[in-house]
Structure formats: structure tokens, C-alpha cells
Amino acid sequence: MILGALILSGFSSGVSTVNAGMRDTRSIYKALFIYNFATLVDWPSEYRKGDFIIGVYGNGNSVHSELLKKYNGKAIGAQNITVKKYNSISEIKTVPHILYLTEEKSDKITSVSSKYSRKSSLLITEKEGYLNKGSIINFVIDRKKNNKQSYEISKINAKKHKLVIASKLTSLAVKVVE
């Protein structure tokens, strides 16, 4: 048609070569929430020395990878964050400040909760109704607000573990059990 016209080729496949595929946004949010929980919860004085341990109970979990990548070795107050991963309850030797039970391991909350009933460990789960089973913070999806990643809190359970939760944290929770 046109003498000497250049040809634009390969454009249709050009878009797909960049950043296609899934990016794990869920894990980023959860890891950031967990870090924020660490800053908005008060532990008893005996827990404010040594490393600040964030444990993840569950296999091959990407939240663990996020925590490890972004927070391991970093300071929170006067403590250094250590991120650990456990595949079974028996692997947990030192009481973690925070113990996040992945969705697949959340049903172990009852046994974890009883094992740490006298310890100040912030137990986080990820299944509906699990505040009733001993969890202190439970990750939920807020269906009323565009499916946002959110959380619910049991202040009763927090008190049992001698943890004090900042009002800023409770004010943005989907549900707070007093």
C-alpha cells in the first residue's frame, strides 16, 4: 500500500512479556498487619528484652517469606525482630511474641492456645469464628467493605495472655470482643 512504510510488528505479544502473572498482594498486607500488631500491642516487661520473635506456624507460607524478607533482623523498639517458621507445634521451643497460624494451621488454635495459656504470645489465626477458640487476632475478609483484608480482635483473650491492645488497633477492627 505505502512505498517505504515501516512495519510495526510484535506489538500484540509485547504487553504480555512484562509483569504478567500473579503477584502475591495478600501476603504483603498480612505481613504488614502483623508488623503493625507488633507496634500496637504492649507485652509485659519480661517480654521486652532479648529478640522479638515472630513465629509462623504452617508449611511453605508466603507470609513467612514476606516477614523474613522485610523484618528479620530489624529493630522494634529496643529489640531485634527474629522471624521463625514452624511446621509443627513441637518445633516451637521459645515462646514467640507473635504466633501466626496460617489458614491451613488455624484449626490448631485450641491446642496452641492451651499450650501458651500462661504466656504472653499474641496468637493470630485466619479462620472465621476462631476468636471463640482462643485466637486474639483473627484475619478476616471484610465482605461489607469491598472484600478488604481486615481483622477481628478478642480483648478478652488478649487479657488472658496479659497483652494490652492499643485503641488505634481496635478502632479499625471489623469486630472487637470485649
Binding site: 503477584r23 498482594t25 504488614l32 503493625n36 522485610k70 530489624k74 469491598n146 472484600n147 478488604k148
Partner: peptide, 25 residues
Amino acid sequence: ADVVEGMDPFSTDIEEIDRIQNESI
């Protein structure tokens, strides 16, 4: 996804997470 991945891991507080979720959604 860029908005989510671009969150600062230390300075993004709980209210900011909420705002960023609205933006990314």
C-alpha cells in the same frame, strides 16, 4: 499491585493500610 508492593514496611501504619487497600481495590 505496584501500590501494594510499594508500601513502606515500617512507616505504613494501620490507617494507611486501609487507605492503600481502597486505592488498590
